[in-house]
Amino acid sequence: MDEISVRYDNEESGMANEYMAFAIGSEIYGLKIEYISEILNMQTITVVPEVPAYIKGIINMRGKILPVMDVRLRFNKEPMEYNDRTCIIVAMINNTMVGLIVDTVREVMEILPDEITDTESAAKEMHNRYIKAVGKTEAGVVLLLDLDRLVSD
């Protein structure tokens, strides 16, 4: 299992502005790196009955049972067959650990606060209440994820 390791050292002051960029379809999303504990390749998912479609089931992460959520389905997008680029971002928030299935993981990028625009007001038009802000980078616009809402709603 080759995993992309993520640095934990909080001492680096720059980390607060670092985001993991991942893609769903043609859009690029960003998730604050402090929430991410690791990134896994796709693996066998055990289907759990009765759950909403976007919860794909549970996986075995080195002896830990981890629920996985398909972010694509969570955003009400068309389902897509998983392939070898599909990744599971293991994120932790409020003591809940959850795996987020995304089309592919891009890179870690730094987005400074003054490059970020709040979208609270525009959220309704964007049809996506799980985006809390938009960051501008050289590579284009990155939609910044509201993980709390994504996980706890």
Partner: peptide, 25 residues
């Protein structure tokens, strides 16, 4: 995981899960 049970409560017919020898659940 409580992430799931908190959403939908106890799943009818399922009491838990286990990791098998081959690593699957």
């Amino acid at each position: 995981p409580s992430f799931i049970t908190e959403r939908i409560g106890q799943i009818r017919g399922i009491s838990g899960c286990t990791i098998m020898g081959d690593g699957n659940i």
